[in-house]
Amino acid sequence: MNVFRLTGDLSHLAAIIILLLKIWKTRSCAGISGKSQILFAVVFTSRYLDLLTSFISLYNTSMKVIYIGCAYATLYFVYMKFKATYDGNHDTFRVEFLLVPVGGLSFLVNHDFSPLEILWTFSIYLESVAILPQLFMISKTGEAETITTHYLFFLGLYRALYLFNWIWRFYFEGFFDMIAIVAGLVQTILYCDFFYLYITKVLKGKKLSLPA
């Protein structure tokens, strides 16, 4: 555990909580892509099956349980409790274009050809692109609520901090996991355009809106 890893995890947690609170306080999930939220629930579920097979630490177990719990709570909000506010008309990204290639790739490029390991690999690849329906939705509507941009910022920051964590671990522990690193790079790059808008607009007090 190093400072980048810990702040990365906390940033991830902050993102998830911000989203849940935003929906709860405003009683609305407007502007949120339910499809991205489904993908994140799939990511956590397929990655954390090792909760049943191995124990790493109390920290590790509790964070996994919290992430999974929050992911399903978010889904419950979007598709049940606040379903009337869900903007499905703008949430039109075709997730099969992500699921099929990612599923295929996880069978082809993995550390070990075993069910749990393939599911872990699948979750790493899927996470790297799971935000695309949300970004697509924002590009379609041309705007995002400020609180939604805070959510996206912390979600993007988390993987960027993990990149520093991996550099750290490579130098000080000789550890590296090529699958996680490459997927983490892809994931972070997908946020770059958003980071730019966040810094140049949202942090200066303006609403995030895209030119028509």
């Binding site: 995890d9 991830h12 390991e117 964590n165 996991d177």
Partner: peptide
């Protein structure tokens, strides 16, 4: 191929 996949990260 890695010796033993060890996923201690989240």
């Amino acid at each position: 191929k890695a010796d033993e996949p060890n996923h201690d990260e989240l």
